[in-house]
Simulated scan of single mutants.
Amino acid sequence: MRRLVAVELRRLRARRLTVIGLIGVVVGLAFMGYGMWDQARPLTTSQRQAATAAYNQARQDWLAHGDQMRTDCLAGQADARKTDPKADFGCDNMEPRLENYGKPRPRLDDLVPSGLEGAAYLVAFVAFVVGAGFTGAEVASGALGTWLTFEPRRLRVLGSKLVAVVSGTAVVGTAAVGLVLTTGWLLVQHYNPGAHTPAGLWSTLSGQAGRAVAVTAAAGLAGAALALLLRHTAAALGVVIGYLVVVEGLLGNRFSGVKPWLLQTNVIGWLEHGTSYGLDVCTVAPDGSYGCQTVRRAITFGHSSLVLAVVLAAALALTVAVFRRRDVA
């Protein structure tokens, strides 16, 4: 089995689609690194002058109309609290402050989490395409049938291919999140060397990085399995695009109650260790009027983990069952 995996890893590295995918990851990470740098760097002289001018203008408006602005704010807040007792418009903090018109110095907890999430989506997408291309091309070209004449034990062949995809994409995912973590740390050390690091932050970031790598490996595995089932790379990509448009897009927006079971929602819940979604709650008042409001509902990390695990396990079970019996010639 070990030698089979080594052979599949060499095949995976040699594929043109893998090389193109790696180039795409590097380019995408370069753009993300630029975005992190742009977020971390201090304002230029012209930007500081513009911010100061905006603050001075807001200060003049506040001195002239501040009392009325606060009164209007409190009135709006009182109206909102008729339906939401916790509504807070921040009416006591409306006075302009110069620090709010500048740019805060970078901190790890502000800079890195969004970068890790962006890297996870980027590398997971590439992993899915590479995984689908790896198995789909072999089925479509007939190479898989030829390979089975040399190694007829189908489950060993299937297992070696899936292990190769998982390990290969996991390595790329690890390198990507490691680069994001390093870039964020270097930027903070350069622009804000005395920044306070909250207790447990590195543990939180390490957990997020690990979950990003897991999503990458799962995406590669799902791509390889789906392409084996559908016998073609393009078919696997078409099914995923159709799912995103029809189920995630149309049905998810039309029926908010299905959101806890959608893949996109649960991927976010996995990466962010829990998330929430908006549920439309509509009621009919005694006077016959009809109204709706959006209520936030929490989705736990455990829920997201279970949904994703069940979907992936079902896909793998179906792939194994079909691959054992189907003619691949």
Rank of each mutant, 00 (worst) to 15 (best):
Y101A: 12
G102E: 05
K103Y: 08
P104C: 12
L108N: 03
L108R: 14
L108S: 07
D109S: 13
D110G: 13
D110C: 02
L111S: 03
L111Q: 04
V112F: 07
P113N: 12
P113Q: 11
P113R: 10
S114V: 15
G115Q: 09
G115Y: 10
L116I: 14
E117M: 11
G118K: 15
G118F: 12
A119E: 08
A120S: 15
A120C: 11
Y121L: 15
L122G: 12
V123W: 09
F125D: 00
F125N: 03
F125W: 10
V126S: 00
V126E: 01
A127H: 04
F128L: 10
G131C: 00
G133D: 08
G133M: 07
F134T: 06
A137C: 00
A137K: 11
A137G: 04
A137N: 12
A137T: 14
E138Y: 00
V139C: 00
V139H: 02
V139E: 05
V139I: 10
S141N: 13
G142A: 08
G142T: 07
L144N: 06
G145M: 01
L148T: 05
L148E: 13
L148K: 01
L148P: 05
T149E: 06
F150G: 08
E151C: 12
E151F: 03
P152Y: 09
R153N: 12
R153E: 14
R153I: 06
R154G: 07
R154T: 06
L155A: 09
L155V: 12
L155C: 00
V157P: 05
L158R: 03
G159P: 09
G159T: 08
G159V: 09
S160V: 04
S160R: 04
L162I: 04
L162P: 00
L162V: 01
V163S: 15
A164L: 05
A164K: 10
V166F: 09
G168M: 04
G168F: 02
G168C: 07
G168H: 05
T169H: 02
A170H: 02
A170Q: 07
A170L: 06
V171W: 07
V171R: 10
V171A: 14
V172L: 15
V172A: 14
T174G: 15
A176F: 10
A176L: 10
V177C: 08
G178T: 01
L181S: 05
L181H: 03
T182D: 10
T183N: 01
